[in-house]
Amino acid sequence: MAKEFKRSYKFAFYTSLFITIFVSTSVAVYQHLSGNLNWNHLLIFSAVCYVFAFLIIQLRIEHFIYKRVKAVYDKVSLLESSSLKQDQITTDMATLTKEVEKFAEGKKLEIEALRIRENYRKEFMGNVSHELKTPLFTVQGYILTLLDGAIKDKAVREKYLNRASKGVERLIYIVRDLDMITKLETGDLHLHKERFNIVDLIQSVFDLFEMKAAKKNISLTFDTDYPTPIWVHADKDRIQQVLTNLVVNSIKYGKRDGTTEISIEDLIKNKVIVRVTDNGEGIEQKNIPRLFERFYRVDKSGSRKEGGSGLGLSIVKHIIEAHNEKIYVESDFGVGSEFSFTIEKEEKSKDKPKEQPKETTKKNNSSLKFF
């Protein structure tokens, strides 16, 4: 029974008891000295005095606490106004203490999150500034040189204009990739899912970058022969963009005379997993958690030498997540890396021969993204 008493009730109970004892004792002494002591009247007086004192003290305590706690609630917005009830916050200080502790813990987590976001914002702005500044200054330098008189020399003019054009192209890559990431994050970039053969799509990506891989004598190959089509349901252009970024990345960081291998495996009933494996430089474990951040570079000097926007892996992650799928990374530094992602597999019942010509003759108009 005692556990059900609230702290404010205990305070009013004992305080009223002390007051009643003091007043009753004083009245009893006075009546005894005057010779009019009546125990029945004294007991009734004591009971009335106790009840009156208890009510007054309790009401004043509740009013005192309520005004001040309400002021705290209003200032920090601890609870919604609908939950601010006098019988909830004025008679149980333990509940108030828990709410304040909960509020403080929430604010602590919020402050930590804001600090992380602020650090990310500063780093992101610095990276954007650097990525834009490099090609801008390059273009400006060539143009100023031409304006200073080099334009009269036909050979120099053509060479500098070509280099300035490459700088502009890099700026366009960065702006387009940033725009795509923004659309993916906000949901403005809608996916156009269709049924297509993932084997043919991978082969087309291999064909596109065969010459680029040949410069480093890197083989682009499947892990095995896939004589039958593997039909999947996704946005074909976006998945091609994912494969493009992963294959180009493997070539960029691959070792000379190396291999880039792609395998397709059944994961569960309606999923397949596509693995892109290389025997290149590999990635240190400390860099993997930040690998998909915008502009994050494992090897800053090497990445900028190779060119690109620095947004490729970030775009890959957003495209895969837009499909409600997962992307994974496994890497051994100095041995190689494996990027894999899941994709929805088309049901076998939809695998009709008459649909195959439509898939094989459809042109691919996607713009390739390099990083």
Rank of each mutant, 00 (worst) to 15 (best):
A2P: 04
E4V: 05
E4L: 09
F5W: 14
K6R: 11
Y9N: 15
K10L: 12
Y14Q: 00
L17F: 12
I19V: 08
F22K: 03
S24Y: 08
S26T: 07
S26V: 03
A28F: 07
V29E: 12
V29Q: 10
Q31A: 14
H41G: 15
I44P: 01
I44R: 05
I56H: 02
H63W: 15
I65P: 03
I65T: 10
K67G: 10
A71R: 11
D74R: 11
K75M: 13
S77M: 11
L79E: 12
E80R: 09
S82T: 08
Q86T: 08
Q86Y: 04
T97V: 11
K98M: 08
E99H: 05
V100C: 10
E101L: 07
E101F: 02
F103R: 11
A104Y: 06
K107D: 01
K108Q: 07
L109W: 07
L109A: 13
A113F: 02
L114R: 01
L114Y: 01
R115M: 02
R117V: 04
Y120T: 08
R121E: 14
H130Q: 10
E131P: 00
K133V: 03
F137T: 14
Y142C: 06
L144C: 09
L147T: 10
K154D: 12
A155D: 14
A155E: 14
V156L: 06
Y160E: 13
L161A: 03
A164I: 01
K166Q: 14
V168K: 07
Y173C: 09
T182W: 06
T182M: 09
G187V: 01
G187I: 02
K193L: 11
R195L: 15
R195V: 15
I198L: 14
S204I: 06
D207Y: 05
E210Q: 08
K215W: 04
I218S: 02
I218F: 02
L220Y: 00
P229I: 04
P229Q: 05
P229F: 06
W231E: 11
H233V: 13
H233G: 01
D235G: 00
R238A: 12
V247C: 00
K252V: 06
D257M: 07
G258Q: 03
I264G: 03
I264F: 04
R275D: 00
P289Y: 07
P289G: 07
P289K: 04
R290P: 00
R290L: 07
L291P: 03
F292I: 03
Y296P: 03
Y296M: 08
K300I: 09
R304Q: 06
S309G: 02
L311V: 11
I315P: 00
I315Q: 02
I315L: 11
V316C: 07
K317F: 06
K317V: 01
E321Y: 04
H323S: 03
I327E: 08
V335H: 07
G336I: 03
I343V: 12
K345A: 07
E347G: 09
K350F: 15
D351Y: 14
K352F: 10
K352R: 11
P353H: 13
T360E: 15
T361N: 13
S366F: 15
L368G: 00
K369F: 11
